[in-house]
Amino acid sequence: MDSHPAGEVRPPIHLLASESDMVASLALQTEHRFPVVAAMLLEEIERAELHEADTLPETAVTIGSQVDFVDEKTSQLRIAELVMPAMANIAEGRISILTPMGAALYGLTAGQSIDWPDLDGNERRIRILRVRQPSGAEPPAAA
């Protein structure tokens, strides 16, 4: 089931091949508890361009990325780290991949926007301003 309006063009997304397998497994394991988010994640993984670590755009949101983004409805700037569910703590800015916002951020790159439902099912447009990779995961500098 496509959970997005007909005709809506979603931005291309870029994922690490190894990480996408792990996230797809997680989505399948939690489908009974989080059916909407699991479906969103699986749909996004299916349409993603998969990369190895050395070809992934350095501004792509992966697990562990810190993301600066704007909720365009409220103009609120948020800074969050995308994490696996066990590491999530909204008060500390760690958003689970198994939330609508986490699924929306996953695979986007700096400068992109996407319309995504919030926890209440209302469409929100979020725009990625900046992505910082986890320490030690920076892509090698071009020689």
Rank of each mutant, 00 (worst) to 15 (best):
K73W: 02
T55W: 01
L82I: 12
T59F: 05
L98H: 10
I95V: 14
A38Y: 00
A53R: 10
T30N: 12
E72S: 03
H32I: 05
I97Q: 05
D71N: 14
I95C: 08
M87Q: 09
V36Y: 12
V83W: 03
L77T: 12
I95R: 11
R47N: 09
S75Y: 05
Q29Y: 11
D54M: 06
H51Q: 06
S25M: 09
G93Y: 01
D68G: 06
N89K: 15
F34E: 13
S65R: 07
H32W: 08
P57C: 07
S65W: 03
F34S: 07
S25R: 14
S75C: 05
A24P: 03
V36K: 14
E46W: 08
D68M: 08
G64L: 13
D54E: 11
A88N: 05
R33C: 04
S65P: 01
L56W: 13
L26Y: 10
G64K: 10
A60R: 11
E44L: 15
I90A: 04
R78C: 06
A38M: 00
E81K: 14
E31K: 08
A27D: 07
L82W: 10
E58F: 00
A39P: 03
I45M: 05
E46F: 11
E49I: 00
R78L: 06
L98C: 12
E44R: 15
R33H: 04
E44F: 12
V61H: 05
A39M: 13
F69K: 04
A27Y: 09
Q29F: 13
E46N: 13
L77K: 13
I63V: 15
H32K: 14
E58N: 06
V70D: 04
E31R: 12
F69A: 07
L56K: 13
S25D: 10
G93T: 01
A86E: 14
V36M: 14
L41E: 01
I45Q: 03
D68L: 11
A60L: 10
T30R: 15
Q29W: 15
V36H: 14
R33K: 07
T99D: 11
T99C: 07
E52F: 07
T99R: 13
V37G: 13
E31F: 00
P35T: 00
R47C: 08
L56A: 10
M84D: 00
V37W: 12
L77M: 10
A80G: 04
P35W: 01
A27E: 09
L42R: 08
A80Q: 08
E43K: 13
H51Y: 03
M84P: 00
A60P: 07
I90Q: 08
E46G: 08
T74W: 09
E31G: 02
E92C: 10
V70Y: 08
A39T: 15
N89M: 11
P100N: 07
M87T: 04
A80T: 04
H51G: 01
A24G: 06
P57T: 12
Q76E: 03
S25N: 13
E49K: 02
L56S: 07
Q66K: 10
